[in-house]
């Protein structure tokens, strides 16, 4: 037992630096990707085909190609087009793309859940489309998305382990590295799992609370 605790104690600092990186990549991808998802949700419904088509291509590739493909495309593929990104930047770019693509659908569904009479009411009051969006649709539609977006965010944190393919020393890479030196995979991955769970389980509980709170006024 003390052997296990000692081993955990030794590995923890390394694992934590890896986990910090995982959290950074995930956080940054979500912080950039969700607003981009909102933009895509809007441009996908735009009347202009010059906005709609490029958005559709972005979304379909982001959802259709697997994250592994996106990661390697950005990291190994883009340099041949003259754009070389660090493994951190590549990971953020790929996860951001994926986030934008998936959340655009989540957000679009949320905005569509707002009753049509709401925008009509805004319209007859003389609000312009941007004002209707800002004051009427978004404040009602976005809260509807929050639980789903949080659920998605948890998945993204777990998926961030895939960034090992672009040599990003995040949590899973660190665990692999320690494992290949010590061969104590079992306790190692147990600790890794505990770290992921330490963030994901509280987050799941928060999602449940939010779902109940947000249904208050509606």
């Amino acid at each position: 037992m003390t052997g296990l605790l000692d081993f955990w104690n030794q590995s923890l600092p390394q694992l934590l630096t890896g986990f910090t990186l995982s959290l950074q990549v995930t956080g940054l991808s979500l912080a950039l990707g969700i607003p981009l998802g909102l933009v895509l949700a809007l441009t996908l419904q735009s009347a202009s085909r010059w906005l709609r088509w490029p958005s559709l291509v972005m979304v379909e590739i982001g959802r259709g190609a697997s994250i592994l493909v996106l990661l390697q495309f950005v990291y190994f593929g883009l340099p041949s087009a003259g754009l070389t990104l660090s493994s951190f930047a590549s990971a953020v770019a790929a996860f951001c793309w994926c986030t934008a693509a998936y959340t655009s659908e989540i957000i679009r569904a949320g905005l569509q859940s707002v009753h049509h009479g709401q925008s009509e009411a805004g319209e007859v009051l003389g609000l312009d489309p941007a004002e209707i969006l800002r004051f009427v649709i978004l404040p009602q539609g976005l809260p509807v998305c929050v639980p789903t977006l949080l659920g998605f965010s948890i998945l993204m944190l777990q998926a961030s382990s895939l960034a090992f393919v672009v040599a990003l020393p995040e949590l899973m890479s660190k665990a692999q590295l320690i494992g290949s030196n010590t061969f104590r995979y079992m306790p190692l991955f147990a600790l890794t799992a505990i770290l992921y769970a330490a963030v994901c389980i509280p987050a799941t509980i928060v999602v449940g609370r939010l779902e109940r709170r947000l249904s208050r006024h509606i």
Binding site: G117, Q118, E120, L125, L127, V136, Q140, H217
Partner: peptide, 24 residues
């Protein structure tokens, strides 16, 4: 005025009445 009222449920009654006055 609509049959189904279409008030903005996320705003107070006062904001419902004031919003368009401010914007428009």
């Amino acid at each position: 005025v609509f049959q189904s009222f279409n008030l903005f449920p996320h705003m107070t009654v006062l904001r419902n009445v004031s919003l368009a006055q401010e914007r428009v």
